[in-house]
Simulated assay, not measured.
Amino acid sequence: MTSEKDAPPPRKPRVFKADDIVAEPDADEAIAAAGAAAPRRLHTPVPPRRLTASDINRGFRFGSILFSAMAVLASIALGLWFARFVSIALERQDWVGWLAFGLMMIIAVALAGIVLRELIGFRRLARLANLRALVKATIAKPDAANEKKAVAALVAHYRGRGDLAWGLARVRDHTGDVLQQGDLLRLADRELLRPIDGEARRVILKSAKRVSTVTALSPIMWIAVGFVLVENVRMFRAIAGLYGGRPGVLGALRLARLVVGHVIATGGIAMTDDLLGQFVGQDVLRRLSRRLGEGAFNGALTARLGVVAVEVTRPLPYLDTEPLRMREIFGELVRSLRTSKTAKTGDD
């Protein structure tokens, strides 16, 4: 029989969770050392895995196999037919054979020209990106030598352009007169890029009007969608060409990817939607027809993409010039739509 001195001190209350008992392998030993009987281990049942769509669609897809085999067979048949046609045409020694040979040479030269143009377009876009990086680094760390180097690269980039001859001459004449840091870049922005911004604004407005008109008048939705895509790519090429990029079709598609990514990152679509909401609140679009309202929305989205394309391709940020404003372009677009609506009503 133990005395009161030899008795262990009273155990303090402890709280154990069922998850801790299941998760910790030494829970029974810890409870036993604390002076309590080890409880019975609880086993939490594992919930069954939910059935997903991939589980239902698992297995051989005979339809996909069928269409894939048919597509490969059709490609082989088309290739064999073309090869047989070419071989027969070239074997002939009369005018048909010579005509086929001449046309094949024209096709080869045209393909080579297209590939060369795309490569040159990618190189021009890369040169424009390098110029933007140089100007950005100069603005981040102002230095007189780096600023003159950036302006010299900008002048070399636009050398030979007749529409910028006056601005190039003014930048060359005043390069040595500028003393404060940053004024030389502002001079280049004012003399070289302000005229290009005005022409880019006209290109954007013209494309937005085209998209709005075609969307409002097209009886088939897919025709309007195709025209909107083609017109936007054409607008990107024109804007890049104004700022010295002049990309090909693939380069314009790459520029379109950059523009769409920039719009998504900055919330440009929501901004366009808010702008439309403001005009609807002012009872402007409600006076138009439903089709003209759809055209206005597509035109506004095209204008927004054009403004972003200018921001992406412009070698200098807006330093001494007013940036292109989506609100002004869209306001002019709506006024043109209202004018066309009024003229159509008057003719009727």
Rank of each mutant, 00 (worst) to 15 (best):
T302P: 00
T302K: 00
T302W: 00
T302E: 01
T302S: 00
T302D: 01
T302G: 00
A303E: 05
R304S: 05
R304Y: 03
R304K: 12
R304T: 06
R304F: 04
R304H: 15
R304Q: 10
R304M: 14
R304D: 02
L305F: 15
L305H: 01
L305W: 03
L305P: 04
G306W: 03
V307S: 02
V307N: 00
V308L: 12
V308C: 08
V308D: 00
V308S: 10
V308N: 01
V308W: 02
A309N: 10
A309R: 04
A309T: 15
A309K: 14
A309I: 14
V310T: 13
V310E: 01
V310H: 03
V310I: 15
V310C: 02
E311W: 09
V312I: 15
V312T: 12
T313Y: 03
T313C: 14
R314W: 06
R314V: 07
R314E: 06
R314L: 04
P315S: 11
P315N: 05
L316Y: 04
L316G: 01
L316I: 14
P317M: 14
P317W: 07
P317V: 10
P317C: 10
P317A: 07
P317L: 11
P317G: 08
Y318E: 11
Y318L: 07
Y318M: 06
Y318R: 04
L319N: 06
D320A: 08
D320M: 07
D320F: 03
D320K: 12
D320H: 09
D320L: 05
T321N: 13
T321D: 10
T321S: 12
E322P: 08
E322D: 11
E322Y: 13
E322A: 13
E322C: 06
E322Q: 13
E322R: 15
E322N: 07
P323R: 02
P323S: 06
L324E: 02
R325F: 02
M326R: 02
M326A: 13
R327Q: 08
R327I: 08
R327Y: 02
R327M: 05
R327A: 02
R327N: 06
E328Y: 05
E328F: 11
E328S: 12
I329P: 03
I329Y: 03
I329G: 00
F330V: 15
F330D: 02
F330Y: 13
F330M: 01
F330H: 01
G331S: 13
G331A: 02
G331D: 10
G331M: 03
E332D: 13
E332I: 09
E332F: 10
L333N: 03
L333F: 07
L333G: 02
L333V: 10
V334P: 09
V334M: 12
V334D: 04
V334K: 08
V334T: 13
R335G: 08
R335H: 08
R335L: 07
R335A: 13
R335S: 14
S336Y: 13
S336A: 13
L337Y: 06
L337Q: 14
L337R: 07
L337K: 07
L337G: 10
L337N: 04
L337F: 08
L337A: 04
L337T: 07
R338Q: 15
R338I: 10
R338W: 06
R338V: 09
R338H: 14
R338S: 11
R338C: 03
